[in-house]
Design a protein around this nucleic acid. Structure first.
Lengths: 154, 154
DNA sequence: TTCAAAATGAAGCCTTGGCTACAGATTGCC
DNA sequence: GGCAATCTGTAGCCAAGGCTTCATTTTGAA
């Protein structure tokens, strides 16, 4: 797992010779996958706090569709990595770093859903697919999405 | 890991009540992730056989950017799951199921790259992002992509 | 106030997908 | 034919992210 500023990773650096290029692309995808769970948890925690005032492990687990023990273990990783804090039996809270990540993740998610919808994907399918797609959309692609949305009225 | 026919998963079934919907979406994304590695390997093996006549573990590992032992272990899972066969020191071959999956995966990859490019994403970035995105594009979204491509000339 | 239900957290297990290190097979060069 | 380099495969380690089970804490209802 990366630390905060890499949780939404950068785009490809320079040119690489042929075969290495492919290996590099797979490497980028693996990195993005490693941050996906962090991003999902942080965004959900932010949602729960915003809409309900608190984020409890049981609620997080239910919303994600995992066992509560799984959520607690992942939350402990968030704490270890500086995205969240929690006091026993008192819910989970985001650090500044966590809130900042949540904000970026939510904006990216919305934009992906918007663009999918504009392309003719039904709203509910767009939401579902975006849940996976969003973690692999690089900043460059995100910028292209934003430009496309602005060009064609949303 | 799913077996063959689910390796490209289906879209969401019926309507689900509010909170369960979100849990279900995350569940779909987790399933798609579980099939992503299988899809990458199968497509790469098919490429290597088509272009070079054989797919050796070392070549697979180099192209994916992982250690050869990692590739061998994953290949053994492909064999276990009925996507590939191999004889010691004689390279890897796809089963009928494996070839069929490779074909679907390649078509999907190309379409994702095409659509990203049409949206204004630079070619190389589109290729890199598609490596991750493709695994989460449901059949419904894929159909919408194809319709979009056909509507606006590629 | 008491007590049962629900939430929490810890512990231990599994699979996946990385890695390194080492052993054995194959190949090709001399 | 022999030997070194390369390729292959096995074994063992690790972390992530699932799971179940169980003990403990908190909470809320009678």
């Amino acid at each position: 797992m990366d630390d905060g500023d890499d949780a939404i990773r950068q785009s490809a650096p320079a040119e690489l010779p042929g075969e290495d290029t492919q290996a590099h692309r797979f490497g980028l995808a693996r990195e993005a996958q490693a941050t996906a769970v962090t991003e999902d948890y942080v965004e959900l925690i932010d949602d729960l706090i915003t809409t309900g005032g608190e984020a409890r492990p049981t609620d997080i687990a239910r919303r994600l569709g995992v066992a509560h023990a799984t959520a607690i273990k992942t939350i402990s990783r968030l704490k270890r990595d500086g995205f969240a804090v929690s006091r026993p039996y008192r819910g989970v809270f985001l650090t500044e770093q966590g809130r900042e990540l949540a904000c970026r993740v939510r904006a990216r998610h919305r934009l992906v859903v918007e663009v999918l919808t504009m392309l003719g994907v039904p709203e509910d399918v767009a939401e579902a697919d975006a849940e996976g797609i969003e973690h692999f959309v690089s900043p460059v692609t995100l910028a292209a999405f934003a430009a496309y949305r602005d060009r064609h009225g949303a």
